[in-house]
Structure formats: C-alpha cells, structure tokens
Amino acid sequence: MPELYDYIFNEKNWVLRFNMICSVVFLLMILFTVVLILRSRIYKIIEEKKTARYQELLNDFVGTYIFEEDEDFKARIDSFRLNYLKGNFEQEIAIKIILNFAENLKGESREKAISLFYEWKLLEKLRAELNSSKWHRKAKAIHTCCSLQIWELSHLIEPFLNSSKTEVRQQALLYFIHRSPEDPLNFLDKIEFDITLWEQIFIQYELQNNYKGDIPDFSPYLKHTLNSVKIFAMKIIAEFNQFENSPNILPFIEDENENLRQYAIECLIELQEPAALGLLKGNFALETSSVQYTIIEYISKLGSSEDFEDIQKFISQCDWINRLKYYKNSKILTPEIISFS
C-alpha cells in the first residue's frame, strides 16, 4: 500500500496522477456502494423483524388494556412507558398501533385506545412532529391527529391548509373536514390558493363516505374568492343533487372566466336543469372550444334533435374534437360522414 501511495503521488504528470487518484476513489466508492446495497437488504430484514417483535409487544399490551376490565392498569401503563417508549422508533410504532386500534374499533374500546395515547404522553411527540421542518413528519402527525380526533392541536394545523407541500395540505384539509361536524367545509374560508383536482376529489370522497354529519348547503361557496373553490362547489352541488341551487348556478354560464362557464354547464347537466338551453344555443357561436364541447354535451342530455339543428350552421367552424362530438351525439348526416357501402 505505501508503495502504491508513493507511486501515485510521486507521479510527475499531474493528469496521470489525477486519473490514478480518481480510479482509487471510484474503486472505494464502488465497494462502499456494494456494501450499502447488501447492508440495505440485510438491514431491511433486521428492521422488519425488530418492528414485528415490537408490534407484537404493543398489540398485546394495548389489547389487554382495552379488554381486561378488572385490572388496575395505571402502574403498568407508566412502567411500560418508561421501559419501552423511550425512543422515537418505539413511540412511532406505539402511535401506529393505537391508530390501528382506533381505526378498526368503535365505542368504548376505541375510547380506551385513545386514552392510552394520552396516558403515554404521546401528545408531546405529536406536537414536536407538527413543528418539525420535515414535511413527511408533519403530514404523518396531522393524519394521526385526525384519526385520533385530537382537536386541541388544530391551531397548529391550521397554517398547513396553505402549505406548499401537497401531502401536508391534503392531511390538513382532511383534518378540518372532520373537525366541525356542522360545517365540514368551513376551512375553505381559510384557503389562500387554489385547490387542485386531487384535493377536490379527496374532499368530495370524505364528504361522501366518511363524513357522518348532515350534508350542508354548498351554495355559499359559490361566492368564494377562489375560482377553484367555486368550481368545486358546483361539482359538489351536482354530486349531492342540490337542485334547489340551480338558480345560483345559472348566472355562471355567462361569467367571464372560461372554466367557471364550463363547470357551470356541467353542473346544470348533472342537475338536469334545462332552463339554460336557449341561452347556451345563443352563445354557442362565440364560445371557446372547451365550452362549446360542454354545450354540445348539454344539448345531447337535455335538448332535442331540433336543438342540434339550431347550432348546425356553426359546427363547420368548430375544431375537430367538437365536430366529432357533435356528429357522435346528434347523428346528423353531413357530407363529411364516411360510411360503409
């Protein structure tokens, strides 16, 4: 080795020296990476075993606590915390296990599981996670708060409604939907930038499937400052069939924003509101491509073949996608149709 070292560093030609040093560095890095690969594989196996052992321990303890009514657990809880919940790894698994119990059980058993969370002073851990600089830790903590219905930390979670990180924002939205049963969407007032399609799907899903309260009237959100919230309100009015809100949707078909016009028409289609037919036919010629497409859809669902004939003269000026849509829905024969003999 010393000879090799001498050989390299006494080389006069610096290019050669540089290349030799690089070779050695690369070789060391290769060995390091190979070790990393093997270690990664082995580490995964060891980690999995360790986690499984720990989960078993916790499952046993929590299960016993929930289902054993006679014993006095206070001392045992404290001793468990001091012995087994010292580090981050252990605390994270404990939270995960309690979450699992809380998500799958209901009634008294669930309450007991959550009480264990407080007894083990895991709230402090959550608080620390919410203040962490790492987005994935924040997101996970918010999710836990939501599942365990920990509302006392909502002041810490509220700023995340406008987080630039998708995952964090998503969890914050979810949290606030569950936070107020009477008004699940009141967090929308605190949103400062547009909600994405994914977030809309997400919120809609929660309202349809996991939300247990009464479905509120969504029309107030049609007056929101953000267009995406207005669009979302329209979608959700359609989804929940709040046809009494049709009069509130109608004005949007003449809004200056193209997206609002488009979604308003889609909403009216879902609500089966034919009142806009005349106006839409009248506006067809001057409309943008996307809105024209939606108008054709409107006529095919709520109009008649006469209505299709009324706009036929404008179709040749439309783009291909709209011409194709028109033909498919109206089935009106034009010279452009190619059929089999």
Binding site: Q55, N59, G63, F67, I97, N100, N104, L105, S109
Partner: peptide, 10 residues
C-alpha cells in the same frame, strides 16, 4: 390485520 386479530382474540 394483527390488531384486529388481537382484539377478536381477546
């Protein structure tokens, strides 16, 4: 789900 198993078992 091991937790569900545990609960049912208990």
């Amino acid at each position: 789900n091991p937790m569900v198993v545990k609960s049912l078992q208990f």
